[in-house]
Amino acid sequence: MIYVDDHRPAHVHVIAADGEAVFILNCPDGPPELRERHGLSLKTVNRIQKELANHLSALCPKWSEIHGDF
């Protein structure tokens, strides 16, 4: 999730049934970097981080559309 009233640097909030994590995207080239996690296992966080890396080409332009520069 990218919140419209959020702050820089470009980041996303990933919310799951068992917790959440925040990843700095390091746009435009990545790699995403874990900023914080609550309740998620490291295994889950690593899987999410890999998936985010695969979607930077969509996430970074969306962040820029909402907030301007990264």
Rank of each mutant, 00 (worst) to 15 (best):
M1E: 13
I2P: 00
I2V: 13
I2R: 02
Y3C: 02
V4R: 05
V4I: 12
V4L: 08
D5E: 13
D5Y: 07
D6I: 05
D6L: 06
H7F: 11
H7P: 01
H7G: 07
H7D: 12
R8S: 14
P9T: 02
P9N: 07
P9M: 04
P9L: 06
A10F: 00
H11S: 01
V12L: 06
V14A: 00
V14L: 01
I15N: 09
I15M: 08
A16Y: 08
A16C: 11
A17R: 10
A17D: 13
D18K: 15
D18F: 08
G19Q: 04
A21K: 01
A21Q: 01
A21N: 01
V22A: 06
V22F: 03
V22Q: 08
F23T: 00
F23G: 00
I24R: 05
I24Q: 05
I24A: 05
L25S: 03
N26E: 11
P28I: 12
D29P: 10
G30S: 07
G30E: 01
P32A: 00
P32N: 04
E33I: 00
E33M: 04
E33L: 05
E33Y: 02
E33S: 06
L34G: 01
L34F: 05
L34C: 03
R35A: 13
E36G: 10
E36D: 13
R37H: 08
H38F: 11
G39T: 07
L40I: 04
L40C: 06
L42N: 14
K43M: 12
K43D: 15
K43Q: 15
T44D: 11
V45I: 13
N46C: 07
R47H: 14
I48N: 02
I48Y: 08
Q49T: 04
Q49D: 06
Q49K: 10
K50T: 11
E51I: 09
E51M: 10
L52A: 00
L52R: 00
A53H: 04
N54S: 11
H55D: 08
H55Y: 06
H55E: 09
L56D: 03
L56Q: 03
S57H: 14
S57A: 14
L59T: 04
L59S: 08
L59H: 03
C60N: 12
C60Y: 07
C60H: 07
P61M: 09
P61T: 09
P61E: 10
K62Q: 14
K62V: 02
W63Q: 02
W63P: 00
S64P: 05
E65K: 15
E65G: 10
I66G: 06
H67P: 05
H67K: 09
G68S: 15
G68A: 15
D69T: 15
D69E: 15
F70C: 15
F70Q: 09
